[in-house]
Design a protein around this nucleic acid. Structure first.
Length: 519
DNA sequence: AATGAGGATTAAC
DNA sequence: GTTAATCCTCATT
């Protein structure tokens, strides 16, 4: 792993090699936080679109830790890139226990799962994508940094020192292109006492603009003199007690990467959820898009169009006759076909809603029992410590521990109490298996790498971890004895119902949604 | 051994 | 009646 691969990673996103799964809506959520902790000059370099690789020091001297400071943002994308390769989470949180860093005792986790971008959306899906790419572009160098000395707790500390956001100045629209002018119409009702900890997008946007200005200034400097100077400057490393990292440890570092970025993603998802809460309250609609009536779909569409300052659709009701359950099954292409100007944005936003709701369900399913076993008075107990009574939960516990770090912050202690923790199934036990599978496919923060799209346009997916998918299904249906044998039997029942089928060339664990169920 | 296919029965709604 | 869970046998990979 030398410079070549280093460069490859560095340009992975800009070269269009960003995995299809790295969705724009996730970036959308992620960029809500990009202002945080980004006051350091180095961050601007990591952002630079035209980051000159020739400026990088030779292999041995790559000051990888310089870019690690940008870790929270970078890892959001980076980790999804590698998420499919990370199955075994124990190493993730084991890092917390072994890092030697001072760890803040975690409160109950707000989010048991890491939040990964939906694999459904294409990079060109929305205008946010280019923005996000521009921002995070060139940041894959962080992938090469296992960050042994910068764990989530330090990230949290960075976030913690941010100036507090004015509680009433919410600009809740997640897109940077959506100004606050419309936000009054969707302003969050004080649904609970946690509103005051709301993240203020105004602040974030201002910080972001400052960074853009910084970047522009840098761009016009000949030979990237400032960049050179900063790359050679090690004060940053000393300041943060960072050590140069061996690129060879990249693979092993991915696990830690995942652990590190989860808090930020949880925060992003948290924000998305709060925004959704506010809109739900205003429109009097369910948080679950599947529950929307056609009229509520229209209300949501109009609200979202206004929110993003998109041209209002004259015949929205005619174009979208679906109810919520059908709406969530529409592809981005279908959205775009109906509304060329705004379809991708609407689809992306809907994906965020779905993700936020799925995350909430995940919390309802898993938070309470996991918290009690995974993070007790022992503090950061290494998750790979056996919990003999709950083998089924070990994968979830692993996902829970990392986000727990962040929940110590003022902005993230919020929903852990407001959720109906411990209420298993959350009233979603009527879900059909095919819907659940689509939900998993759309919410990899829940399923990890257990199931993924092979060819989304054709509705072909693969169950990568049959045991895990079966467990998740069993959890959802409150059927502890569920296994893949039973699950697959149900899937096979779908054959004659025309819901699913095996692919033309039958492959193990590969199934395909039939057309009406996958557009 | 894991997975796939499908029959049969049962339970929940 | 529908759907899924469960159990089963047998075939395939």
């Amino acid at each position: 792993m030398q410079k070549m691969e280093y460069e490859k990673m560095l340009y992975m996103t800009s070269a269009g090699e960003m995995p299809h799964s790295c969705s724009s809506q996730f970036k959308l959520a992620a960029e809500q936080f990009q202002g945080q902790g980004q006051t350091d000059t180095y961050a601007a370099y990591a952002y630079a679109d035209n980051f000159d690789l020739s400026l990088l020091p030779e292999d041995a001297g790559i000051p990888t830790t310089v870019y690690q400071y940008n870790a929270p943002q970078i890892k959001i994308e980076a980790a999804w890139e590698c998420a499919s390769d990370i199955q075994e989470l124990p190493t993730v949180t084991a890092a917390y226990a072994s890092s030697g860093q001072q760890l803040i005792p975690p409160p109950p986790p707000a989010y048991p799962h890491s939040a990964y971008p939906s694999p459904q959306s294409s990079p060109q899906q929305s205008e946010f994508a280019s923005f996000a790419y521009g921002k995070y572009n060139g940041s894959y160098d962080c992938l090469s940094s296992p960050c042994p000395s910068l764990d989530a707790s330090s990230i949290k500390q960075e976030l913690h020192i941010l100036p507090p956001s004015p509680p009433e100045s919410n600009c809740e629209t997640p897109s940077p292109r959506s100004a606050c002018s419309d936000s009054s119409s969707i302003k969050a009702e004080p649904l609970d006492a946690d509103v005051e900890s709301f993240i203020d997008l105004n602040t974030l946007l201002q910080q972001q603009q400052q960074q853009q200005q910084q970047q522009q200034l840098l761009d016009i400097k000949p030979n990237h003199q400032v960049l050179r100077e900063c790359l050679e400057d090690t004060t940053f490393q000393r300041k943060h007690n960072l050590k140069p990292l061996a690129l060879e440890s990249f693979i092993g570092g991915l696990a830690e990467v995942r652990g590190d970025f989860e808090p930020v993603i949880s925060l992003a998802l948290e924000h998305a959820k709060r925004e959704a809460d506010a809109i739900c309250a205003k429109l009097q609609i369910s948080q679950d898009p599947n529950a929307w009536t056609a009229a509520q779909v229209h209300a949501w569409l109009r609200s979202t169009l206004a929110q993003f300052k998109l041209p209002p659709a004259a015949n929205l009701e005619l174009q979208f006759s679906e109810d919520g359950a059908a709406l969530v099954l529409l592809s981005e292409e279908e959205f775009t076909r109906r509304l060329p100007e705004s379809g991708s944005t609407l689809h992306a936003q809907l994906e965020i809603w779905k993700m936020a709701y799925a995350d909430q369900l995940g919390n309802q399913m898993d938070t309470a029992p996991l918290w009690s076993t995974a993070t007790t008075a022992a503090g950061y107990q290494a998750p790979n410590v056996e919990h003999e009574e709950s083998e089924d939960d070990e994968d979830m516990e692993d996902m829970t521990a990392a986000p727990a770090v962040l929940t110590a912050t003022p902005t993230a202690t919020t929903t852990s109490t407001k959720r109906t923790g411990g209420a298993r199934n959350g009233g979603s036990s009527h879900i059909h298996l095919w819907q659940f599978l689509k939900e998993l496919l759309a919410a990899p923060q829940v399923n990890g790498t257990a199931i993924r799209w092979i060819d989304r346009s054709k509705g072909i997916f693969k169950i990568e971890d049959s045991v895990r998918v079966a467990k998740l299904w069993g959890r959802r249906k409150n059927r502890p004895a569920m296994n893949y044998d039973k699950l697959s039997r149900s899937i096979r029942q779908y054959y004659k119902k025309g819901i699913m089928k095996k692919t033309e060339r039958s492959q193990r664990l590969v199934y395909q949604f039939c057309q009406p169920y996958h557009q």
